[in-house]
Amino acid sequence: MIMTIIFYGLAVIGLVFSFVKSREKTKMALMKALKAFENILPQFLGIVLLIGVILSILSPQQISQLIGENSGWVGVVIATVIGSITLIPGFLAFPLAAALLENGAGYMQIGAFVSSLMMVGIVTMPVEVLYFGKKATLLRNGMGLVFSILVAMVIGGIMS
């Protein structure tokens, strides 16, 4: 909520400054903003529905069943896969992760879940490909995946 206010505030301040300096350029900036948004709109709409489908299949209770403390490496793999395909906003993800820990999930598994949630985005690949192409998109997500497992190992090693 605070971020929304800050970002809308920044955009309004930017627009006011821009408008004072040049009406023409401000109009151009808004046109560009609209065009840039329209460029990714179709993918967004598809992704939003896909997120709905995935999250309605995977509930927090089901996730915590899968990645319990004794789930070991299988749990880490499952946590990584779930983290990679779901797209949960951060301010929901951390309370969820904390709740999962309380419900018996292990630190290593939660580390894998949180890290892959952030670094890997299978669902958003259609948008990423538009800007970076297939190769770079696969590379970035692949490296993010490996890195997430590394983070999980360190967190698991230190914290449990």
Binding site: M1, M3, T4, F7, Y8, L10, A11, G14, L15, S18, K25, T26, M28, A29, L30, M31, K32, A33, L34, A36, F37, F44, V48, L49, I51, G52, L55, S56, L87, P89
Partner: peptide
């Protein structure tokens, strides 16, 4: 869930795109 995501998008994306437009022009 999809509508929630749309609302979340509306929370940050419009100003981001406006800032992108301003950056592009200025």
């Amino acid at each position: 869930l999809a509508f929630n995501s749309v609302f979340e998008m509306l929370g940050v994306l419009p100003p981001i795109f406006i800032l992108i437009g301003l950056l592009d022009v200025w």
